[in-house]
Design a protein around this nucleic acid. Structure first.
Lengths: 219, 219
DNA sequence: TAGATTGTTAATCGATTAACAATC
DNA sequence: TAGATTGTTAATCGATTAACAATC
């Protein structure tokens, strides 16, 4: 309909808008202005209006946005109005934690299959799901209409898992392993690496570590 | 020395550079060009050179960058050359998974204290750390020189935990709960919410969900 | 009607990329 | 020397913000 390409920055803000809107909805707020949303999110109101306007005319001049309606619209944009099946490889601590997160009811996204390489893991149950061996990956992804894969294996194995996901026809990968993955261009990869996130946070710490110490700025 | 303000985008790329460099180092590669780094990361070589040049002259014309030296420099920039103590609140599945991740040896960052509100959790041990009650938060953070806090509690409690972190003098927060936090400007917050990450990935899935279905584009 | 707030165009700002002199 | 590659300046591109007519 509108064949405009949306920037990644806009797409990443949509789930954030949804978060705030869900919060407002729970507190029975009917209507919200871009001004109010901007206050809560430390974002420019014009930016919020522009982001939303890429997808349609969701607001009403002089009034603002109907919270319930806007939630519905953003959910449609993010395709959360239809179920999304997800597979996870790596049933370690992190993998199990993610499986226990249940975002099914609220967000229509569900981890529908879990895999691991370790024979000792296979056959065990996590949140109602039986851990399967890797040789069942492709058939399970096809059978269960799984479109997204999550990688929670060690860095050394992540590329191998990604290759198998791609081979099985997955459309997107969420990678928790601390490695860059190489895949065909059509498969989208998002990185969710805990260590990198901590590192970039560490950058912003001001120099208090070295009290009275003559830290060399010279190389 | 160079009082230029570095954009957030640059800072977020540094850990990624480090990842690739560590990988090269393990495979005994001595030297790398911005061209090669760009290939591996799907990034423009000029951007990589510019990013690095904000912090110093790390390369050699005609040669490239010495892998070991560049790792050392980036680690200094990210302050990974000195130990960083981190506290975590919320000893649920995700919290425990993060505590078991041990990035201490490699990256000098360490979860040094774990807290929870649930009495049944308090006193239990996770990866050698005893789970403490919330009323020990402030004193522990001061005593152990903790500078970063991780939040892995449910969304409803996240703001409360953030307030306590700020009150205890923390400098940065990594928030895994699906809520926006409000804190004083000097405290930096990074968001690491699993659900948002999946949602923005879902946006990029092409319409296959509705096979032959006349999906209404009209509102 | 007066006040509020949208959607959108134009202006600004900042980030990415190209180009190239310096030099290993 | 010739080829490679940096650091950096200038050009381009894209994203954010301001401004405002339209309208509830």
């Amino acid at each position: 309909m509108k064949p405009m390409k949306i920037s990644e920055a806009v797409v990443r803000r949509l789930p954030v808008y949804l978060q705030v809107l869900n919060d407002l909805s729970m507190r029975d707020v009917q209507t919200v202005s871009s001004q109010e949303l901007g206050n809560r999110l430390d974002l420019n109101p014009a930016q919020i209006r522009k982001d939303l306007a890429y997808f349609g005319d969701f607001g009403r001049k002089g009034i603002g946005y109907d919270v319930t309606y806007l939630i519905e619209k953003i959910r449609q944009i993010l395709k959360l109005d239809q179920p999304l099946n997800v597979a996870l490889v790596g049933a370690g601590n992190l993998g199990r934690a993610l499986c226990n997160y249940n975002m099914y009811l609220k967000d229509n996204m569900k981890i529908t299959a879990v895999f691991d390489i370790h024979p000792s893991m296979i056959g065990t149950t996590i949140n109602g799901l039986t851990v399967l061996p890797m040789d069942k990956l492709k058939e399970t992804i096809l059978e269960r209409h799984i479109r997204i894969g999550i990688i929670t294996v060690p860095a050394t194995e992540a590329q191998h898992v990604a290759d198998q996901f791609v081979e099985a026809g997955i459309d997107g990968i969420l990678n928790f392993a601390p490695t860059i993955l190489r895949v065909q261009d059509q498969v989208r990869i998002h990185y969710a690496n805990f260590t990198s996130q901590l590192m970039s946070l560490a950058y912003y710490l001001d120099e208090e570590g070295e009290e009275g110490d003559n830290e060399s700025d010279l190389d």
